[in-house]
Computed example of a mutant assay.
Amino acid sequence: MPAVAGAASASPDFSSRFKACYAAAGNDESKSACLAEELGAQDKAVAAAHQAAAQALAGADRQKLADDFVEWKKSILLDCSLQADSQKVAIVRENARKYCLIERSLAHRNADDAIRQDKTLNR
């Protein structure tokens, strides 16, 4: 797992609330709480971006987006769990999994935003 504090501060997509929480966290349990809160917020943002992208599409494109979303969700859950398995300490492993899920969610949200913007501008 990358140094979460350094990686988080380098990414503009992590919330400022997460950055402050993580910087103040003194142990892995506190970091876990910060990661859990950020993951919840990013899950909501991904769902909203997906819905907005779906509304910009019609018919087969909308269905493909929905199908791709389901497959993406399955794959990140597995990929992030496998990636985190290299960590021997349970809390560190869980933190690595959450961090991975947040990173993948940020990328997916940005992709859905790009789809929505492209379809909205090209109407």
Rank of each mutant, 00 (worst) to 15 (best):
K31L: 05
A107S: 10
L57D: 02
A41R: 14
E94C: 05
Y99N: 08
A36P: 00
A48H: 01
Q55T: 02
L77K: 15
V92P: 00
D61W: 09
E94M: 01
L121S: 15
A84S: 10
F69P: 00
C21Y: 01
K44Q: 09
H108Y: 13
A114H: 14
R104Q: 14
A47E: 06
D118K: 07
K64R: 13
S32W: 01
I91M: 12
G59L: 04
C100H: 02
P12Q: 06
F69L: 10
I115A: 01
T120Y: 03
K31I: 07
A33K: 14
G6A: 13
P2N: 08
A8K: 01
A47V: 09
G26M: 01
D43K: 11
D13W: 12
V92R: 11
D85L: 11
A111L: 07
L101E: 11
D67H: 02
C21E: 02
R109E: 06
H108R: 15
L39A: 05
A58V: 10
K74I: 01
E71R: 15
S15Y: 01
D113N: 15
D61L: 03
Q51S: 15
A90C: 02
S16P: 07
A47W: 04
A84T: 02
E37W: 00
V70H: 09
K98P: 08
D113W: 01
N122H: 13
T120D: 09
W72Y: 12
S81K: 08
F69W: 00
E29Y: 05
Q42G: 05
H50E: 14
A10S: 09
A10F: 11
R17N: 12
S30T: 08
S105Q: 06
D118Y: 06
R116S: 07
D79E: 13
F14M: 06
E71T: 15
K44F: 00
G59Q: 03
S11D: 12
R109T: 02
L106C: 02
V92Y: 03
L78C: 03
H108A: 12
F18E: 04
G6V: 13
W72L: 03
C100W: 07
A48W: 00
L77G: 15
P12S: 10
D79C: 01
A20L: 13
Q51P: 00
A5G: 07
A111T: 02
T120G: 03
R97C: 14
L65K: 05
K74V: 04
A54E: 03
A90P: 09
K64W: 06
S86P: 01
L121T: 15
I76W: 02
F69C: 00
Q87M: 15
A7H: 13
I76M: 07
A60W: 11
A96V: 07
A25D: 02
A23L: 04
G26D: 08
Q87G: 04
D68K: 08
L82V: 12
D79T: 11
R116A: 04
Q87E: 15
Q51T: 12
